[in-house]
Design a protein around this nucleic acid. Structure first.
Lengths: 135, 135
DNA sequence: TAATTAGTAGTAATCATTACTACTTATTAT
DNA sequence: ATAATAAGTAGTAATGATTACTACTAATTA
């Protein structure tokens, strides 16, 4: 993979973000720096970066793909009320992976743990929707 | 939700399947019984059944949605070689959920645990692709 | 048994994502 | 360095899974 300022900017934006951005969100952000960047370029590079394990693609039912700079191990939490995607800390999964590899004879190379529920803010009745539409 | 023979057949097909069928697969199967059923009807009912927690929608990056009759608690395993989706047994997650609810002040109502790796068959070099195309 | 209204078939539309094409730019071999 | 080469890009068209729409059908109810 050869260098390009577009990919560098895209990776920088994903790394700097704390909201698990969608391709569209990354596009809008990178546009500030490279105004004529193409949405296709953003998609192509997000996929390339995910394939190279530099970032992580998160697939959520009834939602567009999100991307995450997975620097520390964690799980994801999707609030079913405001549809905001949060991080949850955790590393419990490793023992589980080890056991499953032994018992099920599979080789596990990656994982995604996604919880659904009501986030703290929404429990307090202070939810906002963040303009995220559900299909 | 009122009764319809279409929804009944769709639920029956999902329940009888052990391959986490896609909407298209359910459609092809139900068509044997109700030849003029519409693909839109299958989608609508799969969504309705998922919303009613009778089945579960599984979202996988770069793949179409799959559906699962979640009768016993388990995790999912997606082989990165043959792209087949398998079940992995497990119930370890409950302690984790309880701890996260306490520590993070969220209310968790559902979860999805998806592992990636190489399945037993593919480790033995006997993989098939099952005609599943990656975009 | 008629009235109501959810459900359906069939088709058109949507929209996130990918593919394509001509052009540009990073890397390489002379 | 500089030309060759091949990966990357912008812009736009195409794709394809999913949803929306419309006129019709059938399950529930009063």
């Amino acid at each position: 993979m050869r260098y390009s300022k577009q990919r560098e900017a895209i990776l920088r934006v994903v790394n700097a973000s704390n909201v698990h951005p969608t391709a569209e969100m990354v596009y809008r952000e990178v546009k500030k720096e490279i105004p004529n960047i193409s949405l296709g370029t953003v998609y192509r590079n997000l996929n390339a970066l995910a394939d190279a394990s530099q970032i992580k693609r998160i697939s959520i039912p009834k939602d567009v793909d999100h991307f995450d700079h997975r620097h520390v191990e964690h799980y994801h939490f999707c609030c079913t009320k405001c549809h905001q995607l949060y991080d949850l800390p955790g590393s419990t999964i490793h023992q589980l992976i080890h056991r499953l590899e032994q018992e099920e004879s599979v080789r596990i190379t990656d994982y995604e743990v996604l919880f659904y529920g009501i986030c703290q803010k929404c429990q307090k009745g202070k939810e906002e929707n963040y303009g995220i539409k559900r299909k």
